[in-house]
Design a protein around this nucleic acid. Structure first.
Length: 833
RNA sequence: GCGGGCGUGGCGGAAUUGGUAAACGCGCCAGAUUUAGGAUCUGGUACCUCACGGUUUGGGGGUUCGAGUCCCUCCGCCCGCACCA
């Protein structure tokens, strides 16, 4: 067959059709074969793919194709994270149903992905908005309820006024909604929660097992988010009242120095404490003011510490002294117990607060240098809190004890009277999964006046999202007003009851989709064990850093929760994680408002899928940011054309040889080419296996092609087999990156079987051993010459050759040789002085 | 403040983990081919210098025969968390 001109459009269409026809990317559970599960984070069907998607999926596709060639049974699926707000907003705008918009986007985006030639097993495609999918997570929820992992609670929640829904803590970024950047408000609501905090310790501990497989910064972010700290929970009796207030502290050793208490404005005790205060109105105004303050201002560094005395006291359990209770603006209800014992001498915040309000400071930790001199720290002399270690003073029987020891001792002492115990505190809060939006999976519970909260019986699942719903202009969910949805019979007593109208957070869907891919069409159970046990875990997960906490933490939690419900056996979903860098243009993120968006479709039209993939993988290693360059993709296209022309020009002498199969090079040119060929295999394999450094893999293949151009005219006559072998190698190595052109060139070499079915080439160590090596000569560490030496020449011979070099002689003149270092086959360093 | 990461030509980036710094590509320069080209091929391209040679991986110091790589220190940038009790 004659090649003709390189026309990406024609050959890409052609090979995509052949692959589809052959079903070569379809895989089955097969325990006789080693498996490899590579997964890219599935996209939200927004309408079109962007360069970030192309990068994400191209990286994954190379991994999938590479592992397939290495002989693994590779699972590489694709699907759609299809529930969510944008669909609803678009539906409002276009006066249609969110499903219409979503399914249309899915079909457009699927087509775009197919144009890029990705090796997905499309039979496994799933969309989370389909009842066949969300039915199962409704069932999971029922199991969670049964197990006590799901519960309902009335509490202040993050409310996004623009999205008209609550948000989980993880979805609030610096006080703003993660999706629309609106200021998040606090609103008291009754909501469904999942007990992710029950798993806080395991989620933290198991991060160790991900060490090495996950980027360090993602592990760190998760550690910080979980925020484990060791300390104690101490109970303070409120004076003249029956109530007590618990505090969490990491410094129980400073308890003797606690001279007042601060509680958060949201603390449930506040109301009782101020009930009979003469200045109640004033206090209430202060409290309301704090509660209404937005989170950014309240969390600001420079916010002045302010508080107000409640009029009540509590009793310091060790000193027996009455200490005043304040409401303070810097105490957060969301951390610890929402109440803090204040030790102004040893905590900077308390110090500032005490100074401002004239509250007493009592030093109880003595700095070592004072302790040595037999002196005691006087709090009155402090200009800031002393928070370093030391020895206890003014602390009764504990005086003289190192403060680290005292932490335990003080708590043990309190424990006897039930007033304190060692405690671990987490920053992590339970996951609020209720959303007041329409386009999500309905939460399967029913409210009955007589029976209370009643789970929907499993046989009645799925609770379907009504197809005839009309989205509302005001953005609120239409569900509460839909009588045919809301009104139902109580499954327990049969009386009229109301259905829950909230839907799940969409992160619920994305927390288990990767497991469903293992057995996506199972109608009798969510996860077929045989398939799940074979395919899971995901060996390589690839996606953006923006999910470092959100999706990745929820998925880890889900895996553990489903394990405890008996669905899965593994504890961690993703063995290895690659967070790819962003695609930038002109130094900034591509965005519509900046007008610097490069449309993948336009690139495919102009240069083809192969050149687009090649550029995006060549320009930068996957974890780094990638600067889009119009000239760069030009260069990628040029390289592919260059490879194409090489084959075209030699077509008449090329034969269908397997890679690296030419074993008897006669000429120097053929020897050199053979070395390059095997060395390229070595480098390419090493670099893919080492952190997926596709940029250097491609560079190595380019070098091989450059070498081919050097020797092609000579070898065309004398040793065409050398060319056939080397070209087969280049084409095979490049095929995961630019699969269409490589298939075409592979066929042009005369091969009849598809390249996708070929094994990854292996190199011969012996081919990398040269007769002659170039050695570098240094004098005092500076390069002064080079020479050719036989491979593995004896040390003294090499030394002699090195010393004899004219330029080396020059630099040794008049000096004595002190030492000669010889690194075999590499360099000689002559030390003179 | 705490934590993670980074700093190499005009640009994107290499460097077999302590052994020729700048591979590969972009850009630029020159030559060839061509009616012509923004196509293609060949060569050149860190900096200073006519040259010999010298200098260079954010700055300074150290270890070493030898440091982009290891250690100390300072500077700068990016990211995450942040009144966390």
């Amino acid at each position: 067959m004659a090649l003709g001109k390189y026309s990406p459009e024609d050959i890409e269409k052609k090979w995509q059709a052949i692959w589809k026809e052959s079903g070569c990317f379809q895989v089955e559970t097969d325990p006789s074969k080693p498996k490899y599960y590579v997964l890219e984070m599935f996209p939200y069907p927004s309408g079109k793919i962007h360069m970030g998607h192309v990068r994400n999926y191209s990286i994954g596709d190379v991994v999938a194709r590479f592992k397939t060639m290495q002989g693994f049974n590779v699972l590489h699926p694709m699907g759609w994270d299809a529930f969510g707000l944008p669909a609803e907003n678009a539906a409002i705008k276009h006066e249609t149903h969110p499903a219409t918009w979503t399914y249309q986007n899915i079909s457009e985006m699927r087509e775009q992905l197919q144009r890029l030639g990705y090796s997905y097993d499309w039979r496994r495609e799933l969309a989370t908005c389909r009842p066949e999918y969300y039915k199962w997570e409704q069932m999971f929820f029922l199991k969670f309820l049964e197990k006590g992992l799901a519960y309902r609670k009335d509490s202040p929640q993050n409310w996004c006024p623009t999205c008209n829904t609550v948000l989980a803590n993880e979805q609030v970024e610096e006080g703003l909604c993660w999706r629309c950047d609106s200021e998040v408000e606090q609103k008291d609501m009754e909501q469904w929660f999942l007990r992710i905090t029950d798993y806080a310790d395991e989620l933290l501990k198991d991060l160790e097992t991900l060490e090495g497989g996950w980027p360090e910064r993602v592990l760190t972010m998760q550690r910080n988010w979980i925020g484990k700290s060791y300390g104690a929970e101490l109970t303070f009796q409120v004076k003249d009242m029956s109530e007590t207030i618990d505090v969490f502290t990491t410094r129980p050793d400073t308890l003797y120095g606690a001279t007042f208490m601060s509680v958060a404005a949201e603390h449930p005790m506040v109301e009782k404490l101020i009930a009979d205060a003469p200045n109640r109105a004033e206090i209430e105004a202060f409290v309301t003011n704090i509660r209404n303050m937005d989170r950014i201002k309240r969390g600001a560094d420079d916010l002045e510490k302010e508080g107000v005395f409640t009029g009540k006291y509590c009793v310091n359990p060790v000193t027996g002294k009455d200490i005043p209770i304040y409401v303070a603006n810097f105490v957060l209800m969301g951390y610890g117990t929402g109440a803090v014992m204040a030790v102004p001498a040893h905590d900077q915040r308390d110090f500032e607060f005490a100074t401002k309000y004239g509250l007493p400071k009592q030093a109880v930790i003595n700095p070592p240098e004072l302790q040595e001199k037999g002196e005691k720290l006087d709090a009155a002399t402090l200009t800031e809190a002393y928070s370093a270690p030391g020895f206890l003073i003014h602390s009764g029987d504990f005086d003289g004890m190192p403060n680290e020891d005292a932490k335990k001792a003080v708590v043990e002492h309190l424990d006897k009277s039930g007033k304190g115990k060692m405690a671990v505190n987490y920053r992590l809060r339970d996951w609020n999964v209720s959303r007041q939006r329409f386009w999500g999976a309905p939460i399967p519970v029913i409210y009955c006046d007589d029976c209370g909260v009643v789970p929907v019986p499993e046989k009645d699942l799925p609770v379907l999202l009504p197809e005839n719903a009309q989205v509302r202009k005001d953005g609120k969910s239409p569900l509460p007003a839909m009588e045919e949805f809301v009104n139902c019979a109580c499954p327990k007593c049969g009386k009229p009851a109301r259905r829950e109208t909230d839907t799940f957070d969409t992160f619920f869907e994305s927390s288990w989709y990767y497991m469903r891919y293992c057995d996506p069409r199972n109608e009798s159970e969510p996860l077929g064990a045989e398939h799940l046990n074979y395919w899971m875990n995901v060996d390589q997960y690839i996606g953006g850093i923006e999910h470092a906490i959100l999706h990745l933490l929820y998925s880890r939690f889900f895996t553990k929760a489903l394990r405890d419900c008996g669905y899965v056996t593994n504890s961690e979903p993703f063995a290895n994680l690659l967070t790819q860098g962003m695609v930038l243009k002109d130094g900034g993120k591509m965005s519509k408002s900046k007008g610097n968006v490069v449309d993948p479709n336009a690139m495919i039209n102009q240069y083809g899928a192969d050149a687009t993939r090649l550029f995006i993988l060549f320009a930068s290693p996957p974890v780094k940011e990638l600067e889009w360059s119009d000239q760069g993709i030009d260069g990628a296209y040029r390289f592919l054309s260059r490879l194409w022309r090489l084959v075209e020009e030699l077509e008449d002498v090329l034969t269908p040889m397997t890679p690296a199969s030419h074993g008897a090079p006669a000429s120097d040119a053929a020897k050199s080419l053979r070395f390059k060929e095997h060395d390229t295999i070595r480098r390419a394999t090493r670099d893919i296996e080492n952190e997926f450094q596709f940029n250097t893999v491609i560079a190595a293949i380019m070098e091989l092609v450059n070498e081919l151009y050097q020797v092609k005219d000579e070898l065309r006559e004398t040793d065409p087999a050398a060319l056939s072998s080397a070209i087969a190698t280049a084409v095979t190595l490049l095929s995961p990156v630019a699969p269409h052109i490589c298939e075409e060139l592979w066929a042009a070499l005369g091969h009849t079987a598809n390249l996708t079915a070929q094994p990854w080439p292996t190199y011969d160590e012996k081919a990398l051993v040269l007769d002659q090596v170039t050695m570098v000569v240094q004098v005092n560490g500076k390069v002064r010459g080079k020479f050719e030496a036989p491979n593995n020449a004896p040390k003294d011979e090499v030394e002699k050759l090195a010393m004899n070099l004219e330029n080396v002689q020059k630099f040794m003149e008049g000096a004595t040789v002190r030492k000669v270092i010889v690194i075999p086959n590499k360099l000689v360093n002559i030390v003179v002085g």
